[in-house]
Design a protein around this nucleic acid. Structure first.
Length: 929
DNA sequence: CCTTCGGCGTAC
DNA sequence: GACGTACGCCGAAGGC
């Protein structure tokens, strides 16, 4: 008997993509092209080829509408657009399938399902044995003698009614009715509300088919009965939509679908292009050319991950992961002096070693050391417990003796050290008397520089993404939630496996990531010259902390509380009842349902918004909105700032120590948390008062130095626009100068409103703002806003060219870069969805400016840190707020500090415009502005 | 009980 | 739909 295999190609690619996403696995070709879904599909195809079917076809959806769209305009209407990194893999998949010799079927007007259904039935009628390879449950309706389903991703098989019954509780011929009742949220087919597979199967069991259910609908009891009756009119249409057609007119029959000879040269080219090294090897022949030119790290990474996938897809392990990078390590637990000495010698002899600390707290400024781990080669490692305290804990080396033995290594710049988020470990060791030098590499930063758009750069994610390795998680050894214990209470054996693995994996990740960076010199330079040297600088700033006047904050909290209470009472009075002023949901019900005020603004989810804009819009119709705005402003200040900041004062130092996140913002900016000191209010009087609580100790001053208009200057530099360059060279008030140019007036005749408009345009441009946005910002008509923009571009034509150039570059290359070569990949830049694409274009325009500014201030910080080290008693660098640096210094050192700092900030970049720095001095941060 | 998400608002 | 990058508060919903 002849065998026919029909592969549901589109559905597989889609499911493969999401399965890999869910696992958090990243597969890329050597050039970064996404290949995760391709790996899955290729593996599936190879598995099917081994089965040697007589006939086979790879069936995919054609583009354009199908008959189902005509039946129901809502069909698949809410389906999100195909993600870019999946869309990109479609054509490569088709090329590979073609080259492998598979017949490909693509029929317009129907879906792949219908083509498969038609061929399956015709073949079965002709006496063939048909296998449909799919991940889509709807195909169960086709199961019958001679037609079976397989899902290679789960390994499941459905060959007869018995199997269908086991899975769905109905026979194959009842599947369509089941689907009609349930509906399908993905395809936007509304079924009976609250009727899932169980209920639908129960009804069909009782009544046999959908028609009987419909006829007897009046007899169904309860809420479900109501829901059924409400859905009755839909059900026949649902049935049409979910029925797979079996009578499509095709110009091929099953017997035309023989495997053709594969095209080896095409395959070799495709496998090399997309980094399928194992497949390339199996192809035999000359492995030279592109494949051999790949970085060793990419080979190792891909081979191990591809093997992992092949197991998932076919259920058989036909290749072991690369042992060097994916195998479990073998680790020592060091508890004797002799073992310690042996490891000290081993570390001393290594070119570079990875280290990690274990502590009893997340806050680096409070955590106590519990143990240290090290690794010198992939697979080796040790854990040195020094602070485990649980009852019955075995004897451990004394902490002081251990640190003394390690100190020469850790404090020597000659011994290169490597970590994952090493800033934390630098803090812990410093607070235990070890001043680490020679911190040379950080895998978190390597990953961040390699691709700053990836959201996670923690070790567990990196191990999974780049090594295909599942690490032991913190919660595996210490538990989580209420049951979580301190690391000091973790059994030493468990702690050793976890901690030594951290050092080992850090080392393995470095092997992979440093090789990747070596292929991109500009990225490596940003990493080596900016990010790595910045680590100890940030650690010092965090350790310095800033002094807080806690009494002042408490007074402000009390004042805010009083005013909040007054607002609350007034609001209750106006509403005629109590409600939670903090709850947008209750507020929405009150304002728009009860008081019937107009809902003029909607949230992204379509609900009436209660945000500032919405409340302002109805403030002339009722007193309540104004009171709520008042309350909100006060509540924000108290909850986020005055209450929180006093809580965050470190009891040992009397200061707050923010933590800077170096791999936080995709543009390269730092972010700040615990507490965030980069969003302390400044614009309103009430808000600005909070800055009075950031103080210098007696005899000292706070000095704030900020770059004047740095992002606009970078725009002038990048665009080389003569008008803008001239304005900055003249040292003019740039917004006034812009207004003078745009409105064609002398500088001193520019009105306040004209300057305001020019400022809005200047900023708006850097954010990719449209005429619509500008009109809203300035509260003017859209036409007028368009006129302003036209005038602006007329005066500064090279700015427009620059924006267009940036957009084009982003589309062509998929990324944009800063003056120093830092990259930002834009995942949505070629998205079909216009909103996503437009958002990516705006990000593309903004990133070179925001990112270059970030590069510049980071370079300045490194330079200033080098200078200030020699004046540590007189001055300290405390804070960075994107374009501003805050220092604390002796009152009589201010006049020395300011010119030294200014000089280094100005020299941090050579642009076509001067970098201008403003400085202020005061007893508190407010005064220093 | 804990986590996640939506809505909102602060900074540059 | 309409202005880029963050962090973090609160309430509400949902999972365990």
């Amino acid at each position: 008997m002849k065998r026919l295999l029909l592969i549901d190609g589109s559905a597989y690619l889609f499911r493969a993509y999401h399965a890999m996403k869910a696992q958090g696995r990243e597969f890329t070709a050597p050039d970064g092209f996404p290949t995760a879904a391709l790996h899955v599909v290729l593996s599936m195809l190879k598995a099917h080829l081994k089965e040697q079917p007589d006939y086979l076809a790879f069936v995919v959806d054609a583009s354009g509408p199908t008959f189902r769209d005509a039946l129901d305009p809502q069909y698949k209407a809410h389906r999100p657009p195909m993600p870019d990194d999946l869309r990109a893999q479609v054509e490569p998949m088709m090329e590979i399938v073609q080259a492998l010799g598979f017949p490909i079927l693509r029929v317009p007007g129907v879906e792949a399902d219908d083509v498969i259904g038609t061929l399956a039935l015709r073949a079965a009628e002709a006496g063939m044995t048909v296998t449909i390879s799919t991940g889509d449950k709807d195909f169960a309706q086709l199961v019958r003698p001679g037609v079976a389903l397989v899902n290679t991703m789960t390994g499941s098989r459905m060959a007869d009614d018995e199997a269908v019954m086991a899975k769905f509780g109905v026979r194959a011929d009842q599947i369509v009715d089941l689907l009609a009742l349930m509906g399908d949220s993905v395809d936007n087919i509304p079924g009976v509300e609250k009727c899932g597979p169980k209920t639908a199967a129960k009804w069909l069991g009782e009544y046999g088919n959908l028609d009987s259910v419909i006829v007897n609908a009046d007899g169904f009891k309860g809420k479900l009965g109501e829901n059924l009756r409400a859905a009755l009119h839909r059900l026949p249409l649902n049935k049409q939509l979910t029925t797979i057609k079996t009578d499509v007119e095709l110009d091929v029959g099953p017997a035309d679908l023989a495997l053709r000879e594969r095209h080896v040269e095409d395959l070799r080219r495709l496998y090399a292009r997309y980094g399928f090294n194992q497949a390339l090897k199996e192809l035999g022949g000359d492995p030279a050319g592109e494949a051999a030119a790949e970085a060793a790290a990419d080979r190792a990474g891909l081979r191990s991950t591809a093997a992992g996938y092949a197991r998932a897809a076919t259920g058989s392990a036909d290749e072991a992961p690369d042992p060097a990078l994916s195998a479990k390590g073998d680790y020592d637990t060091v508890t004797t002096r002799a073992q310690l000495d042996a490891w000290v010698s081993k570390l001393d002899a290594a070119d570079e070693f990875a280290f990690d600390t274990e502590t009893d707290a997340l806050d680096a400024m409070q955590a106590n050391l519990v143990g240290l781990s090290f690794s010198t080669e992939p697979g080796n490692g040790c854990y040195i417990p020094v602070g485990h305290t649980y009852p019955g804990a075995p004897a451990q080396l004394p902490m002081a003796e251990t640190l003394d033995a390690l100190r020469p290594l850790l404090e020597s710049a000659k011994h290169r050290k490597l970590g994952q988020h090493g800033k934390y470990d630098l803090h812990v060791l410093r607070r235990h008397g070890v001043d680490v030098a020679g911190y040379a590499d950080d895998t978190m930063l390597e990953s961040f520089i390699w691709n700053s758009s990836a959201t996670r750069h923690d070790m567990d994610s990196l191990a999974k993404r780049y090594l295909g390795y599942d690490t032991i998680k913190f919660e595996d050894v210490a538990g989580k939630g209420a049951k979580q214990i301190s690391f000091a209470e973790v059994a030493i054996d468990d702690a050793a496996r976890y901690a030594a693995e951290d050092a080992d994996i850090t080392l393995r990740l470095h092997r992979v990531l440093s090789a990747k960076l070596a292929t991109e010199p500009s990225l490596e330079k940003v990493y080596r010259e900016i990010e790595v040297p910045l680590v100890p600088v940030l650690a010092r700033m965090e350790a310095n902390g800033i002094l807080i006047d806690a009494d002042e904050l408490r007074r402000q909290s009390a004042d805010l509380s009083r005013r909040m209470l007054a607002a609350q009472q007034k609001a209750t009075e106006l509403a005629g009842r109590t409600f939670n002023l903090d709850s947008p949901k209750q507020l929405q019900a009150l304002l728009f349902d009860e008081l019937k005020l107009p809902a003029l603004v909607k949230t992204p989810t379509g609900q009436p918004s209660t945000n500032e804009e919405a409340l302002e819009a109805i403030a002339d119709q009722h007193e309540l909105p104004r009171i709520i705005l008042e309350y909100r402003g006060l509540a924000k200040l108290r909850s986020t700032y005055t209450d929180k900041l006093s809580e965050m004062v470190n009891p040992d130092t009397g200061r707050v120590h923010t933590s800077y996140h170096q791999a936080g913002a995709a543009t390269g900016r730092l972010s700040s948390n615990d507490p965030n000191l980069q969003n302390i209010p400044i614009r309103t009087e009430d808000g600005r008062r909070i800055r009075k609580a950031f103080i210098a100790p007696p005899g000292r001053k706070l000095v704030a130095c900020d770059y004047s208009q740095i992002e606009l200057r970078i725009m002038a530099h990048l665009s080389e626009d003569a008008g803008l360059l001239r304005a900055f060279a003249a040292g003019a008030d740039i917004h006034r100068a812009t207004a003078a140019e745009v409105f064609g007036k002398p500088l001193d005749e520019v009105s306040g409103n004209e300057r305001r408009a020019a400022k809005a345009i200047n900023f708006g441009l850097m954010y990719g703002m449209s005429a619509f946005g500008l009109a809203k910002q300035l509260d003017i008509g859209r036409g007028e806003a368009q006129d302003y923009i036209a005038l602006y571009f007329n005066r500064y034509p090279d700015v427009r060219d620059f924006m267009e150039r940036t957009r084009k570059e982003a589309h062509e290359r998929g990324y944009v870069e800063t003056v120093f070569g830092r990259r930002l990949y834009l995942d949505n830049i070629n998205a079909r969805n216009q909103g996503l694409r437009a958002g990516a274009e705006r990000a593309a325009i903004n990133a070179p400016m925001q990112g270059t500014a970030a590069d510049i201030i980071k370079r300045a910080m490194i330079a200033i840190d080098g200078w200030i080290a020699d004046h540590a008693d007189q001055a300290k660098m405390l804070l960075q707020v994107h374009d501003e640096l805050v220092f604390e210094c002796d009152a009589d050192f201010v006049d020395t500090l300011i010119p030294e700092v200014k000089a280094r900030m100005a020299a941090a970049a050579e642009l076509r415009v001067p970098l201008v720095i403003d400085a202020g001095v005061g007893d508190n941060w407010d005064e220093a502005h």
